[in-house]
């Protein structure tokens, strides 16, 4: 008999949720908790508002010279560099540091696992990619624990699916704008520049070219093989909509769209930027 286990944790100033499907709820819960603790570890390491996070340490010390970093930090910063390069600078985690500063000022030594800055006052804001990367790591934990059917999201805007519900091609997700997609071993990122306008008074996305908050009501949804890749491209397409999306990714853009809603827990959470996911499509049958 297929059982569903739902778990959640508060991290990265939002809520992460996991729905797991399988035969043994005790094992599912144990795997889900391990995945959530992985997300909490990511938050502890990559949250720039925490003084004891690894990113705060790097920002504090890297202007003085090479700083040893963890394997996880190295993988994240390399993904950021790769994304910056692939998007011609439209995705840049140093955005907000000031004019003239870019990812090119971050020196990564893969062999000895260190990071240094070419100049002082470099800011690293992992923002959305941290959510995508954390979900990727959580998905790896779940797969290693034998879970083959699960759906996860961070703040309703980052989604990662493992496998698919029985008899379905994937987890059915309604992206802002009304399109319905199926996710199976894929990730989805939904971005809007004005999604936090009501809190911050301006966009939370900084245009790396002007170093100013982005002014656009455009919405972007990207389906990609991993959460990190989806986040890189959804952010980059907000900044530069003329970018060509690489093969293997699927993009959906709209200039205006209705407010999306997540439905992992029916009749609960509303989101200003997220997608609608029909986790209740998972059949509960013997």
């Amino acid at each position: 008999m297929t059982e569903l286990v739902r778990l959640a944790v508060a991290a990265m100033a939002t809520r992460f949720e996991i729905v797991l499907a399988g035969d043994d709820p005790v094992k599912l819960r144990a795997a889900g908790e391990l995945a959530l603790s992985e997300i909490e570890s990511c938050d502890a390491a990559w949250n720039r508002f925490r003084t004891d996070s690894e990113v705060s340490r790097v920002v504090r010390l890297a202007p003085r010279g090479a700083v040893p970093v963890s394997l996880e930090f190295l993988e994240l910063i390399m993904a950021c560099e790769s994304g910056w390069s692939a998007t011609s600078g439209a995705f840049d985690v140093t955005a907000g540091s000031g004019l003239g500063t870019s990812m090119a000022d971050v020196l990564i030594n893969v062999d000895v696992r260190t990071v240094a800055f070419r100049r002082p006052n470099v800011r690293l804001d992992f923002g959305a990619i941290a959510k995508g990367f954390a979900l990727d790591r959580a998905a790896r934990v779940l797969r290693e624990s034998g879970v083959d059917c699960a759906l996860m999201h961070g703040g309703t805007s980052s989604v990662v699916a493992i496998g698919h519900p029985l008899g379905q091609p994937g987890f059915r997700v309604l992206v802002p704008g009304g399109a319905s997609v199926n996710l199976c071993d894929e990730a989805l990122s939904v971005s809007r520049a004005d999604s936090q306008m009501h809190i911050l008074g301006e966009s939370h996305v900084v245009d790396p070219r002007s170093q100013q908050p982005l002014v656009t009501s455009r919405g972007v949804a990207i389906i990609a093989p991993s959460g990190a890749t989806a986040e890189i491209w959804s952010t980059a397409l907000l900044v530069n909509q003329s970018l060509v999306v690489p093969p293997g990714l699927c993009a959906h853009m709209s200039d205006s769209h209705p407010v999306g809603r997540f439905d992992l827990s029916p009749n609960q959470h509303a989101s200003r930027s997220g997608a609608e996911i029909f986790a209740h499509d998972i059949p509960i049958a013997s």
């Binding site: 005790v26 094992k27 819960r29 144990a30 795997a31 908790e33 391990l34 034998g146």
Partner: peptide, 13 residues
């Protein structure tokens, strides 16, 4: 007074 609170099963896969 002291406390430790963390919602979890304490069970690992």
């Amino acid at each position: 007074r002291a406390q430790y609170r963390k919602k979890m099963t304490w069970r690992f896969p």
